[in-house]
Design a protein around this nucleic acid. Sequence first.
DNA 1: TGTACATCAGTGAACGCGCGTTCACTGATGTAC
DNA 2: TGTACATCAGTGAACGCGCGTTCACTGATGTAC
Lengths: 220, 220
Amino acid sequence: VSTSPLPSPAPARRSRNRRGEGDRLRADIVATATELLEATGSPEAVTLRAVARHIGIAAPSIYAHFPDRDAMHEAVRDAGFVDLIDQLDAATAGTPESEPVRSLHLGCRTYLRFAEDRPNLYRFLFGPEVKAGPGTADGQPAGGHDLESGLRAFQILVDGITACADQGRSASTEPWTDATNLWVALHGLALLHDCVPLFPWPERGEQVDQLVRSLGRLQP
Amino acid sequence: VSTSPLPSPAPARRSRNRRGEGDRLRADIVATATELLEATGSPEAVTLRAVARHIGIAAPSIYAHFPDRDAMHEAVRDAGFVDLIDQLDAATAGTPESEPVRSLHLGCRTYLRFAEDRPNLYRFLFGPEVKAGPGTADGQPAGGHDLESGLRAFQILVDGITACADQGRSASTEPWTDATNLWVALHGLALLHDCVPLFPWPERGEQVDQLVRSLGRLQP
DNA sequence: TGTACATCAGTGAACGCGCGTTCACTGATGTAC
DNA sequence: TGTACATCAGTGAACGCGCGTTCACTGATGTAC
């Protein structure tokens, strides 16, 4: 019926895990839920039934690994943050300490490439989870979920600017504040880019570099 | 059952419009749908039935004014953009041409206040609408919806920076590019602020001013 | 002034759907003796 | 080596729900004559 790769259920039925390997299904669930999210862009489409269909299991099987749908979503978010931080770590780990400017640019470009490559996942990671009280229909952004993970990624940015300032390559006197501004700008760029694609955007790499220079107060 | 103001349906039944005033229901639908969106933060919660419940009409009555649910959502978006642009126009219209810097700051602060006051609406305005082909489950950001409206709001920013540059208050040589950077930063600030409220944010007004100065290349 | 009638602004019941979740179950896999 | 049995990794049917949408309808409001 559908020709797109993911939303059509897997044809074959998944073979049952051997004893003691039940946790493999958990990993499959998170991976499939993530793919589904990336393909559809909407968390509401990542239902227990849809995930089960694509894996080739019965829907109730998910309950062995997650208490409910929200827990599954949270697992997707957690795994996504791990991916993001891994990529940032990998990108900045390769650069020598003697080149903090290059390292900072690299980090920011990597951040943006992640958001560019996986826009729907990125939006989900930083999107607001509405948590509604039982029986109530009103929702407030939960906020603070994964604050730890976010702060860890953010610290990379602060360290980058600090390193530049230490070597006289940046005029920043408040790296934390400047890093905040830079993060904010990268976030906005990532989201607006894939939300208003028809806008006459400047060349992307150049725009990132410009933001890094301006907000990181890099010397010309 | 619920104590929150909106999600509990209106108690009384709405009195029928007089003849020739059927369009008043349309306005009520858009207003109620907008309120519902702002209260819940999730477009999925803005269902035909929920809107009808709160107005005090039967759900099928909506079909006299909108062909389907998506059309209702689009009307909410359109009305939201009108609100935003009205506020921006009002804010900048009051400042004299001799003070372009103040005008630019005012415009940006107004933009951000809108996003701060109505975060769920703002996120919806600039959020991606996924349009799925019939029968298919995959979604791509529609993009380009309301590009006109967006460009009109954006032009205010470009004009602001140009005016500053004309009077030697900004070092910008490419107002369009600089306005893009500024818009991106404002957007990111608006979204991150209400999505990660636990982050130790700098004072908001100051942060906006800093972004305007840096990205608008204002002279100290 | 009276009255038949068109139309406007809706209503109420019903449909089929996919969803989250529950429940009792099943059958292969490994283990104790 | 054989076998009873516990447990692991799930299954299949069913529930109640809210949803978008359809359909035939209704009753007040205004209008033509």
